Amino acid sequence: MTKKKHLTQRQNDRIAGNQQKRLDRLAQKAAKADQQIEQAAFSEAEPGIVISRFGQHADIEAKDGTITRCNLRRTIGSLVCGDAVVFRRALQSQGTIDGVVEAVQERSSVLSRPDFYDGLKPVAANIDLLIIVSAVLPALSLNIIDRYLVAAETMQIKPLLLLNKIDLLSEQQRTEVEQQLDIYRKIGYETLLLSAKSGEGMAQLDHYLSQGTSIFVGQSGVGKSSLLNNLLPEMGVVTQEVSDVSGLGQHTTTVARLYHLTQGGQLIDSPGIREFALWHLSDEEVSWGYREFRPWLGRCKFRDCTHGNDPGCALHHAVETGDIAVERFDNYHKILLSMAQDKPSYL
């Protein structure tokens, strides 16, 4: 009986190497075949914009104005309304899904809000103007306005303060509201009083909207959907009145969506947010978000100053001299307190 020859380690390595090369060639052939099949299944890549996002799908508008519902590549980590993307259309209809998003372009800006379960959640991208919609019903809340302004300053998005439903105000009430808004005008914020019902202020709103991509944000029930109906009556956006029981608006928009306006520009309608939390920011970021605080930051007597009743507090001094409005200073501390209370325990 012939004794079986044992292979040397070098020979075993050579055989294993040759086997791996064959496997690599087969894998390359398979990948090339898959690529050829995909090339045959989809058209050439083209630019588009996200009109709306639905779970694992998104509606993408191409330059020719057509809208394609697309799947998302697994490599895409985040996609929101307003994102500029690269996508490919299916050459043959696949039911309701007729394309695939290949990549997302770099964002010029992104509006995010903290979610207790999902962390910081993006809402919309590439925004030029953040329109903070308030109304006299529910009652005008300067605290909500300040929260949005801090967010706008942090994300470097230009804000516009819009007070809706002013047709419900008496002459005296309107004077009082003007005084409240003067607090913001004095520190450089633009304001607009408007009534979707009477049409007052709509021409000025059209001018703002025509400048780029805007987004309506604010509590539910302040009339965002009514404004959208006025701007785009053919869309028939559903609206709901403020609840008589809770005094809060009812959510009428469930998914952010981008609309093109006849006067030019784009408008993103976002789901109503009853309270815009800021617990994802640091105290220092909130302080910086108050633009009139900035000349006074770093000038307190003590480095660990909490800007309350601390001796030598520069911000407290600015309040006493009228350089910082008492209302804004009070809201600042309310925001810091709510951040500490609302912050999830896992952070």
Rank of each mutant, 00 (worst) to 15 (best):
F42M: 00
L228I: 03
A27D: 13
H317A: 12
G82Y: 01
S282L: 03
D64S: 10
S170Q: 08
G298E: 05
V237D: 00
K343C: 01
L129Q: 14
D59Y: 14
T8N: 10
T239K: 01
D342H: 03
K301C: 07
K224W: 00
A256L: 08
T8C: 06
T154A: 12
G308L: 05
R53P: 04
G223Y: 02
D167F: 05
G95L: 12
G99A: 00
V101F: 05
F216W: 08
I187Y: 11
K121G: 08
F329H: 14
M339R: 08
L26K: 10
F276H: 05
D342G: 00
P344Y: 00
V123W: 03
K121W: 11
L72T: 07
H207Q: 12
D330S: 14
V237E: 00
I268S: 01
G212M: 12
C305T: 09
D13P: 01
P122H: 03
P122C: 04
H57F: 14
Q250Y: 14
L231S: 06
V80H: 04
A256H: 08
L163Q: 11
R89L: 00
E171Q: 13
T239D: 03
A203W: 01
T306L: 07
L142C: 06
K224V: 00
D34T: 06
Q19L: 15
Q240W: 05
L231I: 12
L72Q: 09
V238E: 13
T191N: 06
I51C: 13
E284W: 02
D146W: 04
M155L: 15
S195L: 01
K165E: 06
I324W: 08
I183Q: 11
L129H: 11
H307K: 02
L149D: 07
E178Q: 15
K343T: 00
N309S: 09
I144S: 13
V50D: 10
C300G: 05
A103C: 01
F329S: 09
V245L: 13
V86M: 11
T262G: 06
T8W: 07
F54D: 13
H57G: 00
H251Q: 15
T75F: 01
I215M: 09
Q341H: 10
A135I: 04
I187P: 10
A30F: 01
Y332C: 07
L130Q: 06
S243C: 12
D323K: 12
M1S: 12
L278C: 08
E200W: 02
D323A: 13
Q35V: 03
R89P: 00
E327T: 15
R147W: 11
G48W: 02
R291S: 15
A103Q: 09
Y208I: 03
N71I: 00
Q20K: 15
F302G: 11
T75C: 02
Q39L: 06
R89Q: 12
A58F: 11
G236T: 05
R113Y: 13
S270F: 04
L162C: 05
S198I: 03
S43L: 02
L192V: 05
D128F: 13
D115R: 09
P138D: 14
G48R: 01
P344R: 00
Q219S: 14
